[in-house]
Design a protein around this nucleic acid. Sequence first.
DNA 1: CTGAAAGCGCTAACAC
DNA 2: GTGTTAGCGCTTTCAG
Lengths: 337, 337
Amino acid sequence: MSITLHDVAKLAGVSIKTVSNVINDYPHIRPATRTRVLEAIDTLGYRPNLQARGLRSGRTGAISLIIPDLRNAYFAELADAVMTSAHERGLYVLIEQMGSGDKASELAVLLGPRMQMVDGILYSVLELGQEDAHLLDIPTPLVLLGDRIFDGPTDHVTMQNAAGSRIATEHLLSLGRRNIVALGAHENEVIGSAGLRLSGYREALDAAGVPFRPELVVNVGTWHRLDGAQAMRALLASGVPFDGVVAFNDALALGAMRVVQEAGLSVPRDVAFIGFDDIDETRYSLPTLTTIDPRQAEIADVAVGWLLERIAAGPAGIAPREHLTTPRLVQRESTLP
Amino acid sequence: MSITLHDVAKLAGVSIKTVSNVINDYPHIRPATRTRVLEAIDTLGYRPNLQARGLRSGRTGAISLIIPDLRNAYFAELADAVMTSAHERGLYVLIEQMGSGDKASELAVLLGPRMQMVDGILYSVLELGQEDAHLLDIPTPLVLLGDRIFDGPTDHVTMQNAAGSRIATEHLLSLGRRNIVALGAHENEVIGSAGLRLSGYREALDAAGVPFRPELVVNVGTWHRLDGAQAMRALLASGVPFDGVVAFNDALALGAMRVVQEAGLSVPRDVAFIGFDDIDETRYSLPTLTTIDPRQAEIADVAVGWLLERIAAGPAGIAPREHLTTPRLVQRESTLP
DNA sequence: CTGAAAGCGCTAACAC
DNA sequence: GTGTTAGCGCTTTCAG
């Protein structure tokens, strides 16, 4: 059996309460006592039992991060950013993947028994939409990430999507490109990354007086490299001419960029490319990929901070807040003049 | 406050023990009672408190996966594979990143209080070496991944590294390449992925009667895209001629391949490339990257299975075992004849 | 400033 | 088949 408070107390010649006080940095302890306890802890190699602590105090010191899929570099990097930010604040992070399932299984993850083991949840919404916002009115402190739910019952942290997409499109326009593909649209979507990014694309075209042409909008359900590659093959086969691509994430851009070059076209000469997310891979692709930096570290930092505030606030709660980061253009080779 | 066993018991008109029995699938329960209890659970929305269960039973239903870094695609994919395998067996996975720290902090993670919250640990060794094997003789069930420690005090699951590297090198030799770079070596390393892969490279050269030339061995400390790119720039600047590259992981290969092409060389015509790991990105790079598939799913599956056996065995323990997967060549464009 | 007692929600023994 | 009891290791309340 492992060492308990009692063992430490016995060795230090105090009660378990005093040991507990020392561990929890209770201020009013005589220095001599504290030293004695600390020494006892050290010699015994005592480690608090987190389960017992959690059971008694109701707090676990852990938060949960619910994301679609770790194989997606954006989310792996987000997980790392959240962990870094949480560790700085003394919190542990449990990562939960929901896969690309349906709404029901996504909710099951959110409400599952594991969520009892955490003080709060960071939830990157995938399947749920605005109409499901009321389902998120749960007792556990919750902060939303992603772009599916706005004006929900709790805090929300994401990037200014439309602005990002507008910057991206304007960048291609500034290079003189006029036949710009929007890659990654979701039909009829208004809210959600795809919908918001498409609207930013349109804004930029409108502002530049370039007519919007539906045949340049390419719908793609999921946003993996494979999807980008397949969509680009179809587009090339269709014969629609284009000289620029705004892809709604980097993976799509990378998949599509490969296919374009495979077809003998030159990037950026024949087709300029820009993505979203600024994943590490974009610094090493051939050519390197211009992209929109969503400020992931800032997102992670604000989200963790707000979640902590919600945890501290308790049942009293906090009125929903929204933080939108300002995206930044990262120019690389795929849009060289 | 949340719903407890007592609430369920009261509603179902039974004792809490009976409810507990139903939840834990205790066999001898009258079907009528079981139904009644199940209904009560359902109407109340009861969820067992995992902390209390863990405290009482000593088991948590979770295992921990300790990896260097989620930003590394190999480990992100490994984490996913382990989670999948663990979930199938009803286990939850806590991911712990150790970063690229020193031995001390790596050990701190391994022995830290969080490790109390899990029934067992899957540990992908990074800094520790053979000489530290005795430190791993800890009470918590442990299974080792990676190539730093062999013949340790517990189970070990990895790939046949030397064989994989030999296959890779033989593949380049079979294309007629004779000036093959080994990219990613660690000076003086014998055990460890780098050491083992270098020895497989030498074996292949020896078997083919091709002389080993030290100037073709490129040392690289860490194995990210950036490292591969930098090393390749230096190699090109050095003027040493080469027509093939065996990179010790895919990230190195991708970084280096980009630089080679940037320099105006053609892949695979001028330089053929092969990597290790078979990460998803290798299917979409330009050109797609030939690589060695380490059988990650098998590694994850065996590791989780063995860990479960160790957990089940309890203090009695199990004699250390070793499972080495058989790597597989995945040929893609970077080594087309 | 420190101690004693209670109990968080659950499961493991052992009654019945 | 089902109920009773005890206690996992800790924090909380309340005395002193």
